[in-house]
Design a protein around this nucleic acid. Sequence first.
DNA 1: TCTCTTGCTGCAACGAGTCGCAGGTGGGTG
DNA 2: CACCCACCTGCGACTCGTTGCAGCAAGAGA
Lengths: 147, 147
Amino acid sequence: MTHNRLNYIEILHAHGYRVTPQRLAVLDALCAAGGHTTSAEVLARARALDARIDRSTVYRSLDVLVKSGLALTAPGDNAGETRYEIVQESPHHHLRCSRCGTEHELSAASAGAFFRQVEREYGYRLTGDHLVLEGVCPECQKHTAGH
Amino acid sequence: MTHNRLNYIEILHAHGYRVTPQRLAVLDALCAAGGHTTSAEVLARARALDARIDRSTVYRSLDVLVKSGLALTAPGDNAGETRYEIVQESPHHHLRCSRCGTEHELSAASAGAFFRQVEREYGYRLTGDHLVLEGVCPECQKHTAGH
DNA sequence: TCTCTTGCTGCAACGAGTCGCAGGTGGGTG
DNA sequence: CACCCACCTGCGACTCGTTGCAGCAAGAGA
């Protein structure tokens, strides 16, 4: 387990949320998974920790974690699927390979210049701080060089 | 109606798809909506044109249009919702305001430099050609300047 | 125009995610 | 430590999107 539970408890309290065994189970499940995880996997892991936990509770808990800033959401492979990720120290985005499914981190610095330019040009203040770019990774490009 | 139906029919044939009343209804629904539309709205508009059309047929038709290159998909507001858009002449991305829901087009040129930099830096070949950035539009920033 | 084949449609059933409700529980107060 | 209330949980029902299947129709060929 890489997270400091006390810290999370304080954060939940600070946002006016109660700390319940179910929420801790979801939190542990999310941490244990590491990186991007589907809600289905979170559900399975949470059930392993507490067999009686309900689907709807897991979804609501994930929502609470996101609202508290403890977790991030990102669109999944099959449009219509949400993935979750425990927050980390350094903000970052993701590159996902559409062939092999591998994910690579993309430093926020790389996107920063682009974001600032868009904000300047269009007057928007960008809040979507978790971008997922789709593409083909270097490895897969090698394997299908013929195409 | 802004689309040239004959053109669409040829494109569907060229991709080996049949042209059916249901598919034309979905196509008309998508064109009538203009811009990004939720699948729920496409379904409603298609039903207005053909009351007997089935949900599954609408989803399958949208899939056919996307595979034919006649429509584009983009992630929706609530992660886990797909939005559809009829293709246009000039490729572009979108800025969406998380407060009022308004959408603005973002020229592909703006993102081009960022995409090329990421490709150079990480070796990826980016294929996700339809980006949606979340933020707060200038209007909404004015109205909530106090916050 | 008629026939025939293949792909399309509507239906029904299913899984994922959401919501309203009644009862349970966290945690603040005395 | 006990009480109490607001929030949370589990349950059940619902919606949205997907899939398998049997029958139908687009459109190619004669």
